[in-house]
Design a protein around this nucleic acid. Structure first.
Length: 237
DNA sequence: AATACATCCAACCGCGATACC
DNA sequence: TGGTATCGCGGTTGGATGTAT
């Protein structure tokens, strides 16, 4: 059995949106807010599927959208972010206020790709078109996807692999002038040196403020055991 | 002026992730 | 726990518009 369609296709409009449809959608969202896209068209009196409404709102009608040409600064930021994130357009859009993933994707495909090619840079790899295919190979330790190892070509020959810290590509190769870390924690402070053998990190329950609950798996006491809470020490168990 | 071709971008489609029952 | 519904994302398409011949 295949996937059920997102909407009843027989009685929905397709193609370009009319001014009247836009007005109806804007009025409805102003009155009721975003959300529940599946039921929205019927409630708003639109002969569109929910998906189409969502796309129209997000990509075109949202009041916080920045219209107009991309600036050189935006261009360079997109290139940097793409080199780090790849085709994760929604993540890239998250760093460019007022721009949508669709807009950035289109802009990338029509302008930036060409711009990079004219500079002699492969837009897919961000490397020189004339450089060897790869100076690095990525291998996985036996059956363990999480143990990604990156070997430089010369290391491949000598058999020396990088350390665990080095093996995290997002740490080793991130762009130094961009901070892409997401955090909901207070500012990071140097953790207290753990006593030998003592487990200092907080479990997931403690991180949610449930210290001492029966699900609590760490040995912290009211959150004091691990010092200041930092997301880097939170273990997802 | 007419036609062909290129470019742009809004909209669609399919799929994976997540929520919900 | 498994099935279904819904959302959100990325790739692709197709029509409008611009440019070259």
């Amino acid at each position: 059995m295949g996937r059920s369609p997102c909407c009843e296709k027989a009685h929905t409009n397709k193609g370009a949106w009319t001014k009247e449809e836009d007005d109806r959608l804007i009025a409805y969202i102003r009155a009721h807010g975003e959300g529940c896209w599946r039921s929205l068209p019927k409630a708003a009196g639109l002969l569109r599927c929910g998906k189409s409404c969502r796309l129209r709102w997000i990509n075109y009608l949202r009041p916080d959208l920045k219209r107009g040409n991309f600036t050189d600064e935006e261009d360079e930021l997109i290139i940097k972010l793409h080199s780090l994130l790849g085709n994760k357009w929604s993540l890239i859009a998250g760093r460019l206020p007022g721009r949508t993933d669709n807009e950035i994707k289109n802009y990338w495909n029509t302008h930036i790709r060409r711009k990079l090619l004219s500079r002699g840079i492969d837009p897919a790899t961000h490397r020189s078109i004339h450089a060897p295919l790869s100076d690095f190979t990525i291998t996985f330790a036996k059956g363990e996807k999480k143990d990604v190892k990156i070997l430089r070509r010369d290391e491949e020959k000598t058999g020396r692999s990088c350390t665990r810290e080095e093996s995290a590509p997002w740490r080793q190769y991130r762009c130094p002038d961009l901070n892409l870390e997401l955090s909901i924690s207070p500012p990071f402070q140097q953790p207290v040196e753990p006593i030998k053998g003592e487990r200092r990190s907080l479990c997931f329950n403690c991180s949610l403020g449930l210290q001492g609950s029966k699900e609590c798996k760490c040995n912290c006491f009211l959150g004091l055991g691990g010092g200041v809470l930092d997301y880097r020490t939170v273990e997802m168990e």
